Amino acid sequence: MTTQALLDERYGRTRSPRRRLVGWTIVAVLALSAIGYLGYTTFASSAASVTATDTGFTVIDDKSVSSSFQITAPVGKPVACALEARDEDHGTVGWKVVQYPASDDASRAFTETIPTLSLATTGFVNACWVP
């Protein structure tokens, strides 16, 4: 036996197999808990997410623009969307929040008219969410 091993044994610095097992058990429980928590939060946030895809817009006149879009949302949940109209300098000239009731369809298409303060060059969905 080496001098270091003799000193460790003499002064009780060796770990018993039971202490080693308890230590690794604690590490394993903490790791599994962290993985479970991350998995749950990932699932919970993706289950309530809403995606919106712009499909087109039409400038009606200098006071309104029509925006067409499609949303994919959780079934049975109401959805709200913020629509925006911008001018050629990328300034916001119109804004509208619309709410849609819950539906049995995951994907739905809509066309909404956004009132504007001046001539808009585009209309689009800024964001959608489950209220």
Rank of each mutant, 00 (worst) to 15 (best):
N126C: 05
P101E: 10
L38W: 10
A73Y: 01
R13T: 02
Q70K: 11
A102T: 02
P115I: 03
V79T: 09
C81M: 02
S46Y: 08
P115G: 05
G76T: 02
Q70S: 14
T72M: 06
L6E: 13
E84G: 08
V22P: 01
N126H: 15
A106L: 05
A34I: 12
P101N: 14
G76I: 07
R20G: 01
T3E: 14
G12S: 00
Q70Y: 01
Y11C: 00
A80V: 11
L117V: 13
D61G: 07
I35Q: 14
C128L: 09
T2L: 00
A120C: 05
A109I: 02
I71W: 00
F124Y: 14
R18C: 05
R86T: 13
D87L: 03
S46E: 13
L6N: 12
K63H: 14
G91S: 15
W129L: 04
S49V: 09
V59C: 02
A44I: 01
K63C: 02
A52H: 01
V22H: 05
V65R: 06
R13A: 03
T25W: 05
V59F: 04
V93Y: 04
D104R: 11
V29S: 09
W24C: 06
P74Q: 02
G39C: 09
R15G: 03
A47W: 07
D105K: 15
V50R: 03
N126T: 13
L7C: 06
D105F: 09
Y37D: 03
S64F: 02
S118F: 01
T25E: 00
S66T: 06
S33Y: 03
R108K: 09
S64P: 02
G23D: 09
S107A: 11
T53D: 05
G39H: 11
D62L: 03
I26D: 04
F124P: 01
R18D: 11
Q99G: 10
I71S: 00
L119F: 07
Y37W: 15
D104Q: 10
V97Q: 14
I26S: 06
E112L: 00
S107P: 00
T58R: 12
A82M: 12
V93N: 04
K96P: 01
A102K: 08
S107K: 07
T25P: 01
T92A: 09
R20M: 11
D89A: 13
V59N: 00
T58H: 10
T3M: 10
T51W: 01
V98T: 14
Q70R: 11
A48F: 13
S68I: 00
Y37M: 13
L117H: 12
G91V: 10
G76V: 03
V75F: 04
S118E: 12
A82Q: 13
K96W: 09
C128Y: 08
A5Q: 15
F57H: 14
V98H: 04
T58D: 14
V97M: 15
E88I: 15
V97H: 04
W129D: 08
V22D: 11
Q99R: 12
E112I: 01
D87N: 12
G94A: 08
I35D: 10
Q70M: 06
V50F: 02
T3C: 12
T25Q: 06
L83N: 07
V93P: 06
A47V: 02
G76W: 08
I35K: 06
L38T: 15
A120I: 04
